[in-house]
């Protein structure tokens, strides 16, 4: 008897977010017959993919005991200089594909370098991650606003936006990219030495240090990982809009990304968590948004629901501990 009880408890803990998603899908399907239509499902997946990709990187940062608030601002900054580079190459008469390639590389590099900057201040500077990324959140946003004079950079490259709205086998490109990153990061976190070290550092930094783990390097790399995902999202979202709004792009991304990670069961204090949990967390957020839209709840109230879900998820985590 006792044995089966522990097993049930175990699975409820582990698959709590998956069960919640199942219930949500059921409720949504009942509330709206439109919900389960393939086009709607694909829409939800595309909507969540932008912040979902960043949430994948955020999973590493949070498991290692950190946090990154700068992701939205960094996305605007990386997207802005990517599009600027592309437009400059276009003006110089280069072929469109060269411009697209350059935009992608520049945005990825900018995102990763932003991550390096955050990571260095956290590890070498010994400043709390919350403070570091609060600071860089302001810095990257202000740099983007300055570059664009608070306006928009519109892409002059037609290929760029074509890629952004393309689908492969009916599934939108950003969804494919998120799936690929999820698979790769899941392997990285669950099966590799680096993944083990990330959990070790977040679990007990002192033991990790005494175990000859290069704690600073492991933590620094988590910020590079998230910076890379920010670069990817910057490219995908600017492709989607064919522009970078320096004052609007990436606003509240940190909220969505952190929410997905926490709803997915990653411990806020670090040490444990999974990539698939974060994916489920991101989908839960998307389904909630979609459902609220369909039943006609004011979009202004959607933030309230999101906030309640985050707090509720942490509350459930507490209960388990």
């Amino acid at each position: 008897m006792a044995n089966s009880r522990t097993r049930n408890k175990f699975s409820a803990e582990r698959y709590g977010s998956l069960i919640a998603l199942g219930i949500l899908v059921l409720v949504s399907a009942v509330l709206s017959p439109h919900f389960l239509q393939p086009q709607n499902i694909l829409n939800i997946l595309r909507q969540i993919s932008y912040t979902g990709i960043i949430a994948l990187g955020m999973t590493f940062v949070i498991i290692a005991g950190g946090i990154d608030l700068s992701v939205g601002s960094l996305a605007a900054f990386a997207g802005a200089i990517g599009v600027l580079t592309m437009n400059a190459l276009g003006a110089a008469g280069k072929p469109e594909w060269v411009g697209v390639l350059a935009a992608v590389l520049v945005a990825l590099a900018a995102g990763s370098l932003g991550g390096v900057l955050n990571g260095l201040m956290v590890t070498k500077g010994r400043i709390a991650p919350f403070i570091v990324t609060l600071g860089t959140m302001a810095i990257f946003r202000s740099l983007s606003l300055y570059l664009g004079d608070a306006g928009e950079f519109t892409s002059t490259n037609t290929l760029y936006s074509q890629i952004g709205s393309a689908s492969i086998a009916f599934v939108p490109v950003p969804v494919w990219i998120m799936a690929a990153f999820a698979a790769f990061f899941s392997l990285l976190l669950g099966r590799t030495r680096y993944g083990r070290y990330v959990r070790a550092v977040g679990s007990n930094q002192r033991v990790a240090l005494y175990s000859a783990i290069n704690v600073d390097k492991v933590r620094l790399l988590t910020y590079v990982v998230i910076g890379l995902t920010v670069g990817v999202t910057a490219v995908l979202i600017s492709m989607r809009f064919n522009a970078v709004g320096t004052s609007t792009l990436g606003v509240n991304y940190e909220l969505d990304a952190i929410a997905a990670v926490i709803i997915g069961g990653t411990a806020m204090a670090g040490g444990s968590g999974t990539i698939w949990g974060t994916v489920v967390g991101a989908i839960i957020l998307g389904v909630i948004n979609n459902m609220l839209n369909m039943v006609g709840v004011s979009p202004y109230l959607q933030g309230t629901v999101k906030g309640l879900v985050i707090i509720g998820a942490v509350l459930i985590q507490r209960r388990k501990a």
Binding site: L187, R191, T192, R193, R196, S203, N204, V207
Partner: peptide, 27 residues
């Protein structure tokens, strides 16, 4: 020791490089 880690994960925490393979360091 890492209290939330398993016996195996603790036993190999220092010597993990020996157990990891390939470019990614698959354990």
């Amino acid at each position: 020791v890492m209290v939330p880690f398993t016996i195996a994960e603790n036993a190999t925490l220092v010597s993990l490089p020996r157990y990891s393979r390939g470019l990614l360091g698959i354990v």
